[in-house]
Design a protein around this nucleic acid. Structure first.
Length: 482
RNA sequence: GGCCCCGUCGUCUAGCGGCCUAGGACAUUGGGCUUUCAUCCCAAAAAUCACGGGUUCGAAUCCCGUCGGGGUCACCA
């Protein structure tokens, strides 16, 4: 059934490339939205085309205030700016479906006129009842075409009486509908198993199916990238394209991101909200790189690559169909790689921003700058910063090692350090002095420095000691030792 | 349950009929460096290519079946 994928030249076509991401504003931005948008963006940019955002707000009940803005923030954060959108405008707008209602209605009516769609006055209660009966008798729940036979006079009368019908697709019977997914090949559906999908709801809003087809056509979308969950409605969309007499753009269904238990990635099992990654101090470039590697791989097997490099080597036809499990450990490793690649100044700037946003500015700018060189090779996420550096702003209240037996040693260390002048209080000098002292006292370095480390920080795992003492300053260091 | 999609180390993947005694990355384990932890370097373990049949001189790669996982079955997207 699967046809060779490369038999159609879409990817190399000379036509203008236009891709879109079409999220619905129903809550916090989802990581899966970014995942798909990334491919849209890269493909459009590679072919000098446009990437647009269309807001699919056709469900009045589920639309959430502020969700659209949160979406923009997420795209901006990831660094994949769109060319056209509700906020930026463009020549094929409006870009919010709620502002295109007339267009949909007009097209739904066109299909009624052509005999491909019909009015349905059935109540939700009746539909519910029909479905219940069908499931009870082990049939597939489908609309029973109760209103298909309605004559035009009756329809008109009921319309005049103010009844609010929906418009449904009239799915042809006994046909094999061959659809093409560019990632998987041809997929054949039996039309008898397809429901008479509602196109226009009784509130005058379109359903996804009508709106997406109409908009992708009028917005001149050249390549459609969407989630795998849409494959089952592909034949409906194919039918609509045929009925309108439009060409269906090549479709690429991306695999669904999975939870560790392999189910569709969800809030319950994974971190689906983009905000979560921000809170944990994941760098957008790291997330972007990580996402790119899910369902796609670099031609030269590279793991770490820039956005530009991704754009120049990405092709939609290389998308895989297997649903990847989101592995946070690899993301963290990659984030660490990006943290280490950042120039010190830039890292400080990012940490500052993170500090202001999520740590409520408990660290001074000055302190962040001083500590950055110490933590750069240690941090996997910004969230870990506080764990390493908290002792700088607050003396330890508890100690990971019992120091009661070490009292004398600590006291003598304090004595050694006391002799330092303020100007000499520098990491290297402190280190060598302490080493020679430990040698003279015949104390092994390991235990000697561990004692000092815990005494100053309370912890066994810390940034380098000498540098930490330098930052802490003579006064504070001695205060803690005493 | 019907329909559809998918199935290579624990995870992300390379692989497009012979370069595969299946390669890389993360994670894991061991070692080196080291005053902790990291970074860095080296090494190991880890997939009988879901399973069973074919096709072929030859199959992870092609075909069929089985099993397993997932998606979808709304006036939600």
């Amino acid at each position: 059934m699967t046809m060779p994928k490369k038999s159609r030249p879409h990817s190399s076509s000379t036509a203008v490339v236009r891709t879109r991401i079409a999220p619905s504003p129903t809550g916090m931005p989802h990581i899966g939205t970014l995942y798909q948008a990334l491919f849209d963006y890269a493909f459009a940019k590679r072919h000098k085309g446009s990437f647009l955002i269309r807001i699919e707000d056709t469900d009045q009940e589920r639309s959430v205030q502020g969700a659209e803005e949160a979406l923009y923030d997420a795209f901006d954060w990831l660094g994949i700016p769109e060319d056209e959108s509700p906020r930026k405008g463009g020549s094929v707008g409006p870009y919010r479906q709620s502002e295109r209602l007339d267009l949909y209605k007009q097209h739904a009516l066109e299909l009624v006129k052509k005999g491909h769609a019909y009015y349905c006055f059935c109540s939700k209660e009746r539909l519910e009842e029909v479905r219940k009966q069908q499931s009870a008798s082990k049939q597939v729940p489908m609309y029973d075409r109760h209103c298909l036979a309605l004559v035009s006079e009756e329809i008109q009368t009921r319309l005049d009486a103010g009844e609010k019908p929906v418009i449904r697709m009239k799915i042809p019977q006994g046909e094999k509908i061959v659809c093409r997914d560019e990632v998987r090949g041809d997929i054949v559906f039996d039309s008898n198993l397809i429901d008479d999908q509602v196109l226009l709801k009784s509130d005058g809003f379109p359903t996804y199916h009508l709106a997406v087809v109409v908009d992708d056509h009028f917005m001149k979308i050249s390549h459609i990238v969407r989630g795998e969950e849409w494959i089952s409605s592909l034949p409906k969309h194919k039918l609509l394209y045929d009925w309108f007499g439009w060409d269906m753009p090549p479709m690429y269904h991306t695999p669904l991101l999975r939870n560790p238990d392999k189910s569709k990635m969800s809030k319950r099992h994974g971190h689906t909200s983009v905000v979560w990654y921000q809170e944990h101090g994941i760098l957008p470039e790291a997330l972007r790189n990580f996402l790119a590697l899910l369902g796609w791989s670099h031609p030269k097997d590279a793991e770490i690559f820039s956005l530009d490099e991704f754009i120049s080597s990405f092709d939609l036809k290389d998308l895989k169909a297997v649903g990847p499990i989101f592995d946070p450990a690899k993301l963290e490793w990659m984030n660490g790689e990006y943290i280490r690649m950042l120039p010190v100044e830039e890292l400080a700037k990012r940490l500052q921003e993170y500090n202001e946003k999520f740590l409520k500015s408990v660290y001074s700018i000055e302190l962040i700058h001083k500590t950055v060189p110490l933590v750069q090779t240690r941090l996997k996420t910004f969230q870990e910063y506080d764990g390493y550096c908290h002792f700088f702003i607050e003396a330890p209240r508890s100690f990971e090692k019992d120091l009661t037996a070490e009292r004398d040693v600590i006291k003598s260390i304090a004595g050694v350090l006391e002799k330092f002048h303020e100007q000499e209080w520098q990491a290297e000098a402190l280190g060598t002095r302490l080493q020679t002292y430990a040698e003279k006292q015949n104390i092994p370095f390991k235990s000697f420095f561990m004692t000092l480390r815990v005494a100053l920080t309370g912890k066994k795992i810390t940034p380098p000691l000498n540098e930490s003492m330098e930052i802490l300053g003579k006064e504070e260091t001695l205060k803690r030792l005493k």
